[in-house]
């Protein structure tokens, strides 16, 4: 599709692209190619065997994953989503973090040394604070168009009208297109429909009172509410920044989560039409 040269009144040559917008064409091609591309992307294991079995080998890169938190607890959903992002997005792939200005005021801004200690080089992240939810969605979509990125983390607390089924569907389609993973962090989000491939509900995991004055790695109770590839479940997971991997949480309810996961595995990955 070459542009047609046309002579302008001024005598200079200009290029006009025919009526078909290149953008639309690209979108169509991407749709045609999408299934093949998705096949080519192997799932990324999270590091906890029973969980990875339920996910069909691991978390799908180039897909939309949604993380919610009970009680609008932004820090725990942010931490869990970052851990997923680290598993999905090996270095040196860059990340885009998109949020709204008030989030930083309420929960603090992402902190370089903290990100670094968590296992993510802050230098890999481009931060955006969009003024409105619609701008944030737009920025995230732009990020998903950028094939050089590994992941886009979009943090929108509450339930703004802009983040609806259509919006998540768009994010999901765009994520599939270039294989850029999308993580939608929605502390305080309700139960509305979503086009996400997986949806997690997380809560910080309280440990037993411990006089040893040594804190263990961060841990969550993570409920997989939606899993397009199979069934859900609930796990107690901790994040090990030293090995950049999830681990089964050592002290709490390992047995119960293991059995539920084992049952899930025994039943095999049941495919559901979505």
């Amino acid at each position: 599709m070459r542009a047609l040269p046309k002579v302008s009144p001024g005598g200079s040559e200009e290029f006009f692209v025919p009526a078909v917008r290149i953008e639309n064409l690209r979108e169509t091609i991407a749709h045609l190619e999408a299934p093949a591309a998705a096949e080519a992307r192997p799932p990324r294991p999270l590091g906890v065997e029973p969980l990875d079995r339920v996910l069909g080998g691991g978390l799908q890169a180039g897909a939309l994953h949604e993380v919610r938190a009970e009680g609008a607890d932004a820090p725990s959903s942010f931490g869990f989503a970052l851990a997923l992002a680290i598993r999905l997005c090996p270095p040196p792939l860059p990340l885009l973090h998109v949020t709204l200005p008030h989030v930083g005021g309420e929960w603090g801004r992402p902190y370089g040394p903290g990100l670094s200690a968590f296992g993510l080089d802050p230098g890999r992240i481009l931060f955006v604070e969009a003024k409105r939810p619609s701008d944030a969605l737009w920025a995230a979509e732009e990020g998903l168009f950028c094939a050089a990125l590994g992941a886009v983390v979009l943090e929108i607390p509450g339930e703004p009208a802009a983040v609806d089924l259509t919006a998540t569907r768009r994010l999901s389609l765009r994520a599939a297109r270039h294989g850029v993973s999308a993580l939608l962090v929605r502390p305080g989000g309700g139960g509305e429909a979503t086009a996400a491939t997986t949806r997690w509900q997380v809560a910080p995991l309280a440990g037993p009172a411990d006089p040893s004055f040594v804190l263990p790695p961060p841990a969550w109770r993570a409920r997989l509410e939606r899993n397009r590839g199979g069934r859900g479940g609930s796990w107690s997971l901790s994040w090990r920044p030293d090995v950049l991997s999830f681990a089964p949480h050592a002290t709490l309810s390992v047995a119960s989560s293991a059995t539920s996961a084992d049952r899930a595995a025994a039943a095999g990955p049941r495919r559901r039409a979505v």
Binding site: G114, S116, D121, P217
Partner: peptide
Amino acid sequence: APSRAVAWPEPVRAGEAAPERPLRLFD
């Protein structure tokens, strides 16, 4: 600036422990 991507030094990690710095800091 957005164009200033600087790699951070690799932090020293002592095995299985909690990160020493928080993910979010208040202004």
